[in-house]
Design a protein around this nucleic acid. Structure first.
Lengths: 208, 208, 208, 208
DNA sequence: GATGAATGAGCGTTCATTCAT
DNA sequence: GATGAATGAACGCTCATTCAT
């Protein structure tokens, strides 16, 4: 009874939007917003060009969805750590171990970070959302952690926000390194080893 | 350099390429390569659209020129420091003081860095050029400096390249912060202060 | 006609084509052929988009059906008047009273007239059908009536077809007025009063 | 010195917009707004698709320009007649002689009238503009003329606006006849003869 | 050299039509 | 029969590039 050959249409389950989002993240991360072609997103998602528009109003809406959906899963993980009450240095090690594991395993984050940076002028609303939902909370959490360390006498005098940025900077560097220079043949960075070494350096350097 | 008596508002054709490059950097940094319009570059350079094509074969050639011309001035300055032979920590402080001053004063570098990151997949040749001409030499220089420090017993055991990235990471972070989040109202970062604090933290943390 | 006991809100499949045609006339009259969307027709008919294609091969076939089905009911009514043999002026008054009542009550005719006019170049076959089935018979009927009046000495010398058009013109004008200018706030026309006054004027003006 | 073959570009004088408008009127009148293709307008104007967008922002703006530019020349001509003070019947004859000549010679008016009618729901602003700039003034002028005739005892009792519509109706009918039914082979209407006969009929029928 | 009107390939988006369910 | 997700041709609009002036 099955007709020979491939059926022209195939009804798929409700995960179509996710498949399109995944394909869109790939294409946007590779090409940037303007150079990405909707048809290419559709091709990688295994659907026709028109199907993309069944789920997303415009190319820009698709882009927004790509960026905003990247926030939730990471946010929860970071928030989870605030509850734990442990000595300062152990907490910093735990947070950055988690971050480096996420960065190493979740290839999607690197792409989104690059997109937010690259498109911030064209889509300031996305930069704002990312700042408010991801950057500011994470930076605030780290700053408060450091300030607590300073009050406990575990951390020397200094701007807590700059200490936090000093810890985070190499995370960003290694992420963008992987996105930018590894594809053209630069020596790979082992993110977990880089971060582990850097965290120890900073912890020692931040002691009174 | 200007012939005396020449009124300075008189545009001399010989300046055209530089003016176009400056305008192009502005527009590319704001919009990215694909979303940048040649006509907008021409407008900001005060020339006609056709004039851009008198000096640059294509939009892509213009982009390549923007990125490659940004290398030379910075490269010389870094190379200059290798000649000087001073104690390890003083050299690190001197290098990063210079870097933070350049980053704070030369708004063009931030834009180019962002462009190289954003367009690395579309224009891998540019990422390669930047890596070979800027990143690898600078990283190699820093690594060799640190290795020398380790041989002198001034720096503890550890991967020299990761120490260098640990030092550089916050420079990149603050640069992209200024490009990405300050325009949407995020709290500004004082790059020189951040870097100064971070360098002291790392120097202390890198001691044996 | 309805079987007794059948609840009237129960949609019977046999009504589908009529419901679709009614919805299609609405949408085509509002938007014109090209701007009308099949999905909107389906929505107003309370069926799915696919259902339209169960009854009509293509959008164009649906449009043809809308236009051609509008012919029959009116044709019978006009033809009915030819049988009656009454004095000239009474017949003219009777015909135009009927026309003005139809025009005032049957909002569908106005829409179809507008469609035939608007789409005559894209669908010349429809203009031809309408001309052959509606316009030419009606105009021929009126012309023969007037020629009879002229032979009886009740109507002055002149082109009978132009007299007929002189009588019909304001009917068309008021119909299109209602379609075109009343929706944007122009003063409404009372079609029956306009036609009554105009018929008297023409009858008097056509006397020898 | 002339290169053989056709030059790829040819700079034309400042009448480009008019050429495009003329071509656009043709295409819109034939196809309606939605079915008209910008590329076809460009082809008939002898320019490329992109050139249309040098002079008109969007297809809709082009359509608006087509409709609004049709108003001015006719308006002046009608207004000119209000100044003249002549006996009632002579004035009516003069006005309609002028109208029939315009309609017979200026093929553009018929197309625009059809467009305004057909697109009034999609582009109500245009129907409003046409009503305010053409229809209402002309109808008001005719009504005032007839009311003056009534005060002079030259016109019998009756609604002046309906008398005016009675006079104008056949003008619209014959115009749309030419647009709609003559292209499909219907017998042509000699607009000037129809109107001349109709005006005499109405004038006689409007006498007290 | 310099200009900017003109070109036309390319892409976002729509929607008539199809067909697996 | 009915549905509506899916398709893909078509078309509006943009903008890098060209070239007559």
């Amino acid at each position: 009874m099955l007709p020979p050959g491939e059926p022209k249409f195939r009804r798929r389950p409700a995960d179509r939007p996710e498949e399109i989002l995944a394909a869109a993240l790939e294409v946007f991360a590779e090409r940037g917003f303007a150079a990405a072609r909707v048809e290419e997103v559709a091709r990688r998602a295994g659907v026709s060009k028109g199907a993309v528009y069944l789920y997303f109003e415009t190319k820009e809406a698709l882009f927004r969805a790509v960026v905003t959906q990247s926030i939730a899963p990471n946010l929860n993980q970071v928030i989870g750590l605030t509850a734990v009450e442990v000595p300062f240095e152990s907490t910093v090690r735990a947070v950055f171990t988690m971050i480096s594991q996420r960065m190493a395993s979740d290839w999607r984050m690197s792409g989104v970070i690059k997109l937010v940076i690259a498109e911030s002028r064209n889509q300031p609303e996305l930069a704002r959302i990312w700042h408010e939902a991801m950057i500011a909370p994470a930076l605030g959490l780290a700053s408060r952690l450091i300030e607590a360390g300073q009050r406990q006498g575990a951390v020397r005098h200094g701007d807590a926000r700059y200490f936090a940025m000093g810890l985070m900077g190499p995370v960003l560097l290694s992420t963008l390194w992987r996105e930018t220079f590894e594809p053209i043949g630069a020596e790979p960075v082992q993110i977990d080893r880089l971060i582990a070494q850097h965290v120890e350096t900073c912890l020692k350097g931040m002691r009174p």
